[in-house]
Simulated scan of single mutants.
Amino acid sequence: MPEPAPPSRADQVSALRPGYAADLAEGLDRFFEPPRTTCPWCGSARLETRLRTTDLLQHKPGRFVLDRCQDCRHTFQNPRLSEAGLEFYYRDFYDGLGEKQLGNTFAGRTRMYEERAESLLPFAPAPKNWLDVGTGHGHFCEAARTVYADTTFDGLDFTDGAELAERAGRVERGYRGSFPELVPDLSGHYDVVSMFHYLEHSTRPDLELRAAHRAIRPGGHLLIEVPDPDSRYARLLGRWWLPWLQPQHLHFVPVGNLRARLTDLGFTVVAEQHAEPHDPVDLLAAVWLALDTAAPRDDLPWLPGPPTALRRVLRAAVLIAGIPAFLLGTALDRLVVKRLSHRLGLSNAYRLVARRD
């Protein structure tokens, strides 16, 4: 017998709506911890508000604030999401309703993943095993095998992505859970640990770095790639800068802070890159976020009901009218800014390679 057809998106949204309605009926306060009065990186009490915004990707309800320390320049979400908030705002983004779309997006970035793996070649040409923390669906590990054919890749993620990656054969072993909690069983096991756009999602970056030091054998390497809060785009584009990614991104660490912390933990930074990890999507993404916010909402399970036919037509009209802006943004991103991103201070990410001493 043929397998039944998967439910349509409209059916999925309809099935999820009662659960979201029940969550929202309890109010949003429980999704946030009390605001901090000191910097979580250096302890300074000299804080200033850097950004106020909303959820521009899923359009779930809530308002989010990023504060910056005036002493060490660390930027962080304040008040930070609670455990309940993390569950609510992550739900149906990487898995569930959003799993297929996001999985297709990640799967289409093979060359970027290969370049990330190649950044380690000058320092570790033949690692035996590699743990990718925050692996998602394991697409990086799958692509990295073309660079390191004899390396065993494992993946770790706090969503079910790690388990999906193992079932798909993209990783040898998929660990689901918190890296600091799982690291006692992984101590000294890996030649390489990578954290690509993971550290900004963690509630305690320092604990993640300590876990990495514990998991890596002496002489092994740590690869970290994170959004660069010192990018000029962060100021020029404001809330429309995609790497802010509120409310998921909790911490934005300036490169000097991260280098110093790694040194304190017993690493030696052997490479710092800015141009290479730049992802040329800033202007295109800003256009999309602005138009998507201005247009009537799509059918989403955290809204009271599906949009009317008129609202669907209006949404399509707004997005179609924005096509010239999409094309212009794409052209500028890829043909102009990409080549000059570091020189102009526009790189949206940086990458560090550090050796465990």
Rank of each mutant, 00 (worst) to 15 (best):
L236D: 11
I216E: 00
S202T: 13
R232L: 11
R214T: 08
R210H: 07
L207E: 07
L199V: 14
P205F: 01
G219L: 06
E225D: 12
D206Q: 12
D206N: 09
P229K: 03
D230C: 10
L209R: 04
A234V: 08
Y233T: 04
L223Q: 13
R214L: 11
P205T: 00
V226G: 15
D230W: 03
S202F: 00
A215G: 05
L236V: 10
A211Q: 00
P205Q: 02
A215Y: 03
L207N: 01
E200N: 14
Y233C: 12
Y233A: 12
I216G: 01
A212N: 05
P218C: 14
A234F: 01
E208N: 05
P227Y: 00
I224H: 09
I224F: 13
R217H: 15
L222M: 07
L207P: 03
R214M: 12
D230N: 06
D230A: 13
Y233K: 08
G238V: 11
G238S: 05
I216Y: 03
W240I: 01
E208A: 06
L207W: 04
E208D: 03
L222T: 01
D228E: 04
G238N: 08
H201Y: 10
L242A: 09
H213M: 10
R217N: 14
A212D: 06
L223K: 05
L237R: 03
S231V: 05
P218Q: 08
W241N: 07
P218K: 12
R235F: 07
A215F: 05
D206G: 13
W240N: 03
G220N: 04
R235G: 14
S231P: 06
L222R: 02
H213F: 11
D228A: 03
P227A: 03
R239Q: 15
L237D: 02
L207R: 12
L242H: 12
R210K: 15
P205R: 00
G238A: 13
P218I: 09
A211F: 02
A211P: 03
L223Y: 14
L223E: 11
D206K: 14
L223P: 12
P205M: 02
L237G: 02
I224Q: 11
L223H: 14
H221A: 08
H213T: 07
A212E: 06
L242R: 15
A212S: 06
L199W: 05
W241V: 04
D228W: 00
R204Q: 13
T203W: 10
R235W: 05
E200Q: 15
L237T: 02
L223A: 11
H221E: 10
R232Q: 09
L209W: 02
Y233W: 15
A212C: 04
E208H: 10
A234P: 09
G220S: 10
E225S: 14
S231H: 06
R204V: 09
V226Q: 14
